[in-house]
Design a protein around this nucleic acid. Structure first.
Length: 354
DNA sequence: GGATCCTTCTTCTTCTTC
């Protein structure tokens, strides 16, 4: 089965763009090219189009939609009491105001020295209790589709583990994530590189973190000039705050870094859901926060695995960061709209009661 | 002292042919 969807231009050459199904066959065909001389793909340079294959594979088209899945799930798990109306987010909108990602000031280029211990600005909510956080904004502006799949996953997990078992499982995941972050921060603050670290010292980490540390060991070798760890960033104009995991140079490029633990492999950026938006939000806030006298244009998402297999590293170029910054601005606007509509409906209710 | 905050995670999967 081969479904020709449309034709796209790649590197000046016209090639067919196809569904995930035909692409699976495409890569399979590439592997057995020598045996399948008459294959329609025998003349295709698979190496040349590997990025296309990856990009199509990472945005697979499923024959099942949230609607059909919901019907199927109701048979298996019973009716959903408070089900969302599964639908995609409306066509990508444009932010009403395009706030700049970078914030160059006249005196800015007097950069901070890169030596010395990294900065850690502890969150102080005094005087800014109403400022929303990056996590909260992202959580409250998930697309109906994301909410649907998350709730479906949760329903399935509860069916498998029970309410109590699911609670324990979630707590275990959070605990591992926190321990991992704290272990990474320790090693970055101590200034030790992975290479000169005594292997015996890795056993000082809690057992549930050792695999994750091994997983990121190849990444730590390329991380240097750590400027901040677990540090609060506050965008005063856009009025949001958050805590950035790390700001450091990765292979010489200054990046906002987000460390993640994951049960499932996440080889493609698209597997990381809202993580790139989160990183862009932190970087944008940092660039507009007077506490930091430099600008961060790039991002890095490092996905670590418990079994110690090499972490996946997703580097976000300045172009990609700008793209996700735009997405962030849209999410921020959605959040503000929600907030004001809640506030006005609460006001109406209050007025009605009087 | 209790409550709340910021994080920590979790989603997208199915098909035919060799």
């Amino acid at each position: 089965m081969f479904i020709l969807k449309r034709v796209v231009c790649v590197g000046g050459t016209i090639v067919p763009q196809c569904t995930a199904l035909s692409v699976s066959n495409f890569s399979a065909y590439s592997c057995v090219r020598s045996r399948k001389r008459n294959s329609p793909y025998s003349s295709v340079d698979s190496g040349r189009y590997s990025s296309l294959v990856k990009s199509v594979m990472s945005s697979r088209v499923s024959s099942q939609t949230p609607e059909t899945l919901q019907t199927e799930d109701e048979h298996v798990y019973g009716p959903v009491v408070k089900g969302p109306t599964p639908s995609s987010r409306p066509e990508m909108r444009v932010p009403k105001t395009l706030h700049p990602f970078l914030h160059f000031q006249e005196t800015l280029q007097a950069e901070e020295p890169e030596s010395g211990p990294p900065v850690r600005i502890v969150l102080n909510r005094a005087g800014r209790s109403s400022v929303p956080s990056v996590t909260r904004i992202l959580q409250q502006t998930l697309s109906p589709e994301q909410i649907f799949y998350l709730e479906r996953w949760k329903r399935r997990m509860i069916a498998e583990l029970g309410e109590e078992g699911f609670k324990e499982y979630s707590q275990k995941l959070f605990r591992q994530g926190r321990l991992f972050h704290s272990a990474v921060e320790d090693i970055l603050v101590s200034g030790a590189t992975w290479k000169n670290r005594n292997p015996l010292e890795t056993s000082e980490y809690p057992p549930e973190v050792q695999g994750y540390m091994e997983s990121i060991s190849h990444v730590l070798e390329d991380v240097g000039a750590v400027r901040a760890t677990e540090s609060t960033v506050h965008h005063h104009t856009l009025n949001y705050l958050g805590i950035v995991d790390c700001v450091a140079r990765y292979r010489g490029v200054l990046c906002a870094i987000d460390w993640k633990t994951s049960e499932k492999p996440k080889p493609f950026l698209s597997n990381t859901y809202d993580n790139p938006v989160q990183v862009a939000a932190y970087a944008g806030a940092l660039n507009n926060d007077g506490n930091y006298k430099y600008q961060v244009e790039n991002g890095l998402i490092v996905v670590a695995y418990k079994d110690g297999s090499p972490a996946h590293v997703h580097q976000l170029s300045s172009e990609l960061m700008l793209k996700y910054w735009t997405t962030w601005l849209i999410r921020l606007e959605e959040f503000t709209e929600q907030r004001s509509s809640h506030a006005s409906s609460a006001f109406e209710q209050k007025r009605g009661a009087v």
